[in-house]
Design a binder for these strands. Sequence first.
DNA 1: TTTTGTGCAAACTTTTTGCAAACAG
DNA 2: CTGTTTGCAAAAAGTTTGCACAAAA
Lengths: 146, 146
Amino acid sequence: MSKASDLKDAGLKATGPRLKILNLFETSEQRHLSAEDVYRLLLDEQDDVGLATVYRVLTQFEQAGLLVRHHFESGKAVFELNQGGHHDHLVCVKCGKVEEFYDAEIEKRQDAIAEQHHFLIQDHAMYLYGVCAECQTRLAGKLKAR
Amino acid sequence: MSKASDLKDAGLKATGPRLKILNLFETSEQRHLSAEDVYRLLLDEQDDVGLATVYRVLTQFEQAGLLVRHHFESGKAVFELNQGGHHDHLVCVKCGKVEEFYDAEIEKRQDAIAEQHHFLIQDHAMYLYGVCAECQTRLAGKLKAR
DNA sequence: TTTTGTGCAAACTTTTTGCAAACAG
DNA sequence: CTGTTTGCAAAAAGTTTGCACAAAA
């Protein structure tokens, strides 16, 4: 029942939709899910939850600190489980794959810069957009084919 | 006529709307403008350009490399003039103010990380979200006032 | 029972698209 | 003149909200 108490700690009742959504993030292959992704995955496993509820729950979870919201370049928000350890993201602009990394030196420099600018930092959000190894080879193949 | 030739170099005809929009970015106080911002600013100076045209032109300019598109956390895209020199952004989550910075050490680490992950990097996009100095004092005042 | 949460449909915001008229080269 | 570009209105896409009903404590 750790999930139910996670929710109670956040001041949220342990309802069906909330438990299902939390469970999804804990068990899904992909760490990064959009509202639409969550909605579809739940439909697939016959757990019908309204799309509006998905949006509401995701926002509540973000406010409760259970999830972190990101705005990659796609125009839609994606969420991932907040497991404490901060990290940054490498995002493939071709296939959408996300790889995570952490670099202490970068974090240190970020803090120094925020201080210089008198910014009270809330989110060290770094996204490196590029083309992943797989897409590079795939695209190279396509070029040669012409 | 440098603007007109900038456009021609990009394979775009030098039309009224395009020249006005490019000019706006070159003369505006704020470096970072959303489509809506551009639309309103042009209306203010009696230069009527349809909103759809603003969107189309901004996208064309981005593809031509004249502008850079960012997705801050606001849900709307903002654009800035591409002046070659790469930099990162400190974004105030309270007032939306954007400050720019550049840190060679961070760039170096980013390149190293991209290489480790076999990513072909396209955009070193770093956004530090926080609260700017002004908003910190403003919010502190508000708290005391209660 | 009383508060809180859910589903649905409708509204809203940002961005895109189809098409006829206007414009640049 | 001929292909591009524009403006408008309509449509998409993502997200939020109002409200009656359902579920949790």
